[in-house]
């Protein structure tokens, strides 16, 4: 299925409506800023200082305390959502699924008037979609993702996160869509993102070939990314050991994310992308 397919777009629209219903009301730039200013939601009182807007003086307080106090309101501002899409060769079998999920999240973000930047993570960090704002950029976003190849070799997650932080200093939200099968590990990259104040969310996409081993006999196992090979004889014992190691790896990712307060969704290509998004919306933590 193409990402620009009308049917796919319709499914994205349905997801957006669901998001509005679940989250209640407008999603328009509804992320609270930590700065206080001229919003409409009362936040606090402050002593009047020279230069403050007279209109913000709270005369009722003055009548009671004979002190000039001004009302502070929360500033409501848009945020930048970085979607990092793993485009390494290990994602080849699940690339369409990963792109569908990433496009769904990007669509919801664009509809919420957030800024969206989509990155491809391969050997280097490339920008698929630069800073984009508004629903009008939907097709641009979908076309860009459609044209993104899956050709990256040897993705080094931690280094690429550092590159992201260097390029984009403003805090925002970082959604990593990947299989998280990084030989050097994922902990450093996730910690780095979080340490710089980003809201981090992980979306692990796997398929049956990743989790199960049906191979038997003599094999030259070759890494799809690096091309490194290893000659092995796979018996039932080795296959079971691999499946166990894979399960441990995924469990470790889950517990590590929980420990760091990072949201994580683990899914497989068997689950349709809209069901994945629905589950995320219902569970909360990503959009709300």
């Amino acid at each position: 299925m193409l990402l620009t397919d009308p049917d796919f777009v319709r499914r994205l629209e349905a997801l957006y409506l669901l998001a509005r219903k679940v989250l209640g009301g407008s999603l328009q730039a509804d992320r609270k800023s930590t700065r206080k200013g001229s919003g409409i939601t009362f936040a606090d009182h402050a002593e009047y200082a020279l230069g403050d807007d007279y209109r913000s003086i709270d005369w009722r307080v003055y009548a009671r305390l004979e002190t000039l106090m001004i009302k502070l309101f929360e500033i409501e501002e848009d945020t930048t959502v970085h979607i990092i899409l793993d485009c390494s060769r290990s994602m080849e079998s699940k690339f369409l699924h990963a792109r569908q999920i990433a496009a769904s999240l990007a669509y919801i973000a664009l509809s919420s008037m957030d800024r969206v930047v989509i990155h491809s993570m391969g050997q280097t960090l490339e920008t698929i979609l630069p800073h984009t704002h508004g629903r009008g950029k939907l097709m641009t976003m979908l076309q860009a993702m459609q044209d993104t190849p899956c050709s990256g070799n040897d993705s080094r997650f931690s280094e690429l996160t550092r590159e992201l932080l260097v390029r984009y200093r403003r805090r925002g939200m970082v959604i990593v869509v990947s299989d998280f099968l990084f030989a050097e590990g994922y902990e450093t990259g996730l910690q780095r993102l979080q340490w710089f104040g980003h809201e981090v969310y992980g979306l692990q996409v796997l398929d049956d070939q990743d989790t199960r081993c049906t191979l038997r006999g003599d094999m030259d196992l070759t890494c799809v990314e690096t091309g490194n090979a290893r000659r092995v004889t796979i018996t039932a014992t080795e296959a079971a050991a691999f499946e166990k190691a894979m399960a441990n790896w995924n469990e470790s990712l889950k517990s590590q994310c929980a420990k760091m307060g990072i949201g994580l969704t683990q899914t497989t290509t068997d689950v349709p992308f809209d069901q994945v998004i629905q589950a995320i919306l219902h569970r909360g933590g990503l959009v709300a």
Partner: peptide, 11 residues
């Protein structure tokens, strides 16, 4: 032996 690509050689 047969060549077989894998996504998790490190495992």
């Amino acid at each position: 032996p047969r060549k077989q690509p894998t996504t998790a050689l490190f495992l």
